[in-house]
Amino acid sequence: MSTYAPRHTPSAFSTPASTTLFRRLTWEGTVPLEVRVDAKELPANSDRGLECYYMQAPRVSYLPLLVPEIKRFLMDVVFDEAAARVIKEEDWWFESEEGSLLKWHWSIGLIYDNHTITASLRNNSSSSQITPLRLVLHLASPPTDKLLLSPSTDACKQAFMGQLKEADFMRWGSTKRMTGLRKAEQDGLWEGIKEHNFDEYWRVAAKVTPTTTPTRSTSPPPPPSSASMHTRPPSADPGSTAAPDRDGAYSVRSVPVRIYLPDGPVLQDLVPPVLEDGTVHTLAKFLATHLPLLFPPGKPPLAYALVQGVHAPPDAEMAWLGACMPSADGWVNVCVGILRDARVGRF
């Protein structure tokens, strides 16, 4: 446990140990993938018994970053030399087994959780059983229009930086913290993901991600000075208040949160860390506000919420989720699945 203590991780100099622990757990999360080349597109003379590749991919990674490892396997084992010469990885793209396009700019963890909740609509098998997500790899004719990005690492990096800035704007009403980073620091964020290096990523990310403070890491009461803070306009410059924890998770204008529903819809709105009545905003209140039909107040819920693959407890605080369990792009992804009859009340 001592490795999580701030004094042993210089990158997290001012971050409390509990926050660093959850960031580390999130970072180390992986999901099982089965990558199968579309049988119709396998080049002649491929070894057909082996066109399937199994891997354990980091949740924080992205599909374009997995391509080199998959390519190495295919080149070594499946394709013959003639085929290996003409294969162009720029033309590769992925679909789920059910035929839905997988987006380049969604993290692997989001793709996995989104698949889990979409499957919750259709089958009765328990979603607690971990099965590999089956991906179909296509080797040609990427539908660039639907992928929204060209399938390159560069385009993915740009989209990632855009999301970080959007998250920064959600929190503070400006992107000052992100634009204040040096170019090398910004690149370090992406390099950290590419190398799956926690310290390299969080050395920089800790400068833009608010943290919970040690004294308030468990159900903090609203600070005594909160009244003036809550009445200031949402876009007010956080630098203009003198509150001691003005950079803290409970001082942001809004936690960057998106709700993902089965089969597609994504909802986003301002999510203040503290509500107007001075109480701390929790996941239960958040879901009851935005999805009252699925999480009816005072009744058993019809749905459950996954954050980083975990059934998130209803009393999780939104500010805490924003500090401890965001995706690498800064956003807390709440994936909502449908409870089957047998699992009523699990949430």
Binding site: K103, H105, L148, L149, Q158, A159, G162, Q163, K165, E166, D168, F169, M170, S174, T175, S254, R258, V266, L267, Q268, D269, L270
Partner: peptide
């Protein structure tokens, strides 16, 4: 300030 993801909806951007 930032370039949104192309699949963000106008309503989500407007609200935020």
């Amino acid at each position: 300030a930032f370039a949104p993801a192309p699949d963000d909806t106008v309503t989500n951007l407007f609200k935020s």
